[in-house]
Design a protein around this nucleic acid. Structure first.
Ligand SMILES: [Mn+2]
Ligand SMILES: [Mn+2]
Ligand SMILES: [Zn+2]
Ligand SMILES: [Zn+2]
Lengths: 155, 155
DNA sequence: ACCAAAAATGCAACTTCGTTGCAATAGCTA
DNA sequence: TAGCTATTGCAACGAAGTTGCATTTTTGGT
């Protein structure tokens, strides 16, 4: 998915946005910039634990800040905790797939605006600022596993 | 949106599903059947308060049960608490619109499967069981209010 | 490099959300 | 109606998220 991002690049993001470059912000941004899948808060905390001492309140505040400045996007989930991903031009808004079996969340190909307009219909009452599409079902590996189980008579 | 549902109808839903007809379940189902917009847990609690004495744990358990039996659908939101709506054949899966200003959540027209397949593309690795589309922006009334404010020079 | 002002973080306390175990109660079937 | 089973209420708990305030760090100008 996203190419590996170097610390230098994350520093640039903060600079361009006009945010001060604290070690905590750099660390959080690095996590988000170097993951292949969206991460939720506990994932971020786990990833940070080894790298930096950081208060959990600070993580919440940093994520809110990043979201306000549109550095990151928040992905809603019915599971309670939401996910976050980097919001750059190289990583435009796109649908997500959540496997009901292994709960893995993965990114799908982005929609073009013309595609989006096709199915959004002629509704002109709303000004659309963000479109979130979450698809769920069974991912490839879980589907295969299910097939094999059925074949061998398990469950 | 949905036509007003009578108690008799909600009883039928429970009966068809094979669930026992307790006052608590009937009350929760009536709330969901008679609202024009999806409701979150606190909305359900508020609506129930006047009608029946019910423990909050029971509400959670009833909603889980209804969801498991596909009587209701859960709508994810980045706001933390999720929303619920009745899942009947008269009320098929459809996109939702959330106003960033007034936080009103409203239902949009459902997509046909052929429409959905158009923009889902040729991805065959996933078995798709559920598609959730959440659109956000400004609703008609909030957009008008904003316009008026700008015209009169208010922020 | 230093200093002062402003910003960010840590900490503690608190609220809300959601879950679990168990005892009491109510619904269902015979 | 009686007994069995399913459901609810209650209490307690853990996790998630927020807020106020003291402390520390960053920043920008000297
Ligand atoms: Mn993504
Ligand atoms: Mn709806
Ligand atoms: Zn899977
Ligand atoms: Zn609105």
């Amino acid at each position: 998915m996203l190419p590996k991002t170097k610390d230098k690049d994350t520093l640039l993001i903060l600079q361009k946005t006009g945010l001060s470059k604290t070690p905590q912000r750099i660390a959080v941004l690095n996590i988000l910039a170097n993951t292949t899948v969206p991460v939720n808060i506990s994932g971020i905390r786990d990833a940070l634990e080894a790298k930096i001492r950081i208060n959990r309140v600070t993580i919440y505040r940093i994520l809110s800040l990043f979201k306000k400045h549109m550095i990151i996007r928040e992905i809603a989930s019915t599971g309670g905790t939401n996910y976050f991903e980097l919001a750059t031009m190289e990583n435009p808004v796109h649908p997500h797939f959540l496997c009901r079996n292994c709960a893995a969340l993965s990114c799908l190909e982005p929609l073009t605006f013309s595609q989006a307009n096709q199915w959004l219909g002629p509704d002109k009452d709303y000004s659309i600022e963000h479109i979130e599409i979450n698809i769920s079902g069974l991912c490839a590996s879980c589907r295969n596993a299910t097939k094999l189980q059925k074949r061998s008579g398990k469950v």
